[in-house]
């Protein structure tokens, strides 16, 4: 009973729910602001993502006559729910060690594609040809970037498993404990290709340039989101903010879970700084400097570089 309550608390307040939302929206605002600065613009205020949500809540909801009503309205909720659960599993090194002590890496791997699946559901249920196009593009992108993600997670699990003698360790708490003892994986030469692959995976999964192909507003009119407006679209945006927190937090937990002393506030701020650095490096810089790939270019990019890099790490871990 107490465990269930505690888990619920973790899901609603920290690190999932309120905390993850706050961090996600703050990071999204920072992202837009910094992108503008990189392009010599002033950019929107930091609270702009929240203002967007406020605006969307005041708009009316339109549902196409030909759309599948239930699926159309459930898709954003599904994406949000997946990420809200996932956020509770993200450990904050030195502050919070994760919801469970075993196999949470696998849970995260299965929950991470949920927003993409929700987008596909949205695209196919909206009965719009652009939605269907966005659906197929999203599917192709997902197929392309899930392989390197799997290889990255596997290689991390195997490095830690070799160190602790467990074969493969799928507990994030164990992974962090191992790195505290044996040095952070981000500075380990065999894991560098995996880190690079994870950095390349981030823009794809967040759907930002140059991989914003499924939601390309100039080609397929925002693709799956075409028919959404008002509160359901706000739901998608909230889900996206949660996802920002999840993927950045996961990256920090996997590669740089170092702590500064024992005081929780310092560790929390240090965690956020590392998340921010990860975001600027892999999302903002790339977004500010690039245009958009064609879907085949993006697919082959993911099949070639991140997959190859992550497999190099995996093989190195296996052999050494």
């Amino acid at each position: 009973m107490v465990d269930t309550l505690l888990a619920l608390l973790h899901m609603i307040i920290f690190p999932g729910g309120v905390f993850a939302l706050a961090v996600g929206f703050f990071f999204k605002g920072l992202d837009r602001r910094f992108e503008a600065r990189l392009q010599r613009r002033v950019g929107p205020p930091l609270k702009q993502p929240l203002l967007d949500i406020a605006k969307l809540l005041t708009k009316e909801t339109l549902i196409p006559n030909t759309a599948s009503r239930t699926a159309f309205l459930m898709a954003p909720v599904l994406g949000f729910a997946g990420m809200a659960v996932c956020a509770a599993f993200i450990p904050v090194p030195g502050v919070y060690h994760g919801l469970t002590n075993m196999g949470d890496l696998l849970v995260i791997f299965y929950l991470l594609p949920v927003p993409a699946i929700a987008l596909m559901l949205a695209g196919s249920s909206s009965s719009s040809p652009f939605g269907a196009l966005g659906f197929s593009r999203e599917m192709l992108m997902m197929l392309a970037y899930e392989v390197p993600l799997l290889a990255v997670l596997l290689s991390v699990a195997m490095v830690v498993g070799k160190g602790t003698g467990a074969g493969a360790e799928f507990s994030l708490a164990e992974i962090i404990r191992y790195q505290a003892a044996a040095g952070q994986l981000g500075f380990n030469p065999i894991m560098m290709p995996a880190l690079a692959a994870y950095l390349m995976f981030l823009p794809g999964t967040m759907g930002v340039a140059p991989f914003d192909i499924p939601e390309a507003e100039t080609e397929v009119l925002e693709g799956p989101l075409l028919e959404y407006g008002g509160p359901p679209l706000a739901m998608f945006q909230i889900g996206s903010a949660l996802k920002t927190f999840v993927v950045l937090g996961l990256g920090v937990a996997l590669f740089f879970p170092g702590t500064l002393g024992d005081f929780w506030l310092v560790n929390l701020i240090w965690f956020l700084c590392k998340c921010l650095a990860l975001m600027v490096l892999s999302l903002t810089l790339v977004k500010a400097a690039t245009g958009r790939f064609r879907i085949d270019q993006a697919f082959w990019f993911y099949v070639k570089y991140p997959t190859a890099l992550s497999l190099v790490s995996l093989v190195l871990v296996w052999v050494l």
């Binding site: 600065r37 990189l38 010599r40 002033v42 810089l285 500010a288 400097a289």
Partner: peptide, 17 residues
Amino acid sequence: GFLKVLFHNVLDGPSTD
């Protein structure tokens, strides 16, 4: 090259009216 451009953009500050 583009990193250099981005770096200078940040240094120079916004050119917005």
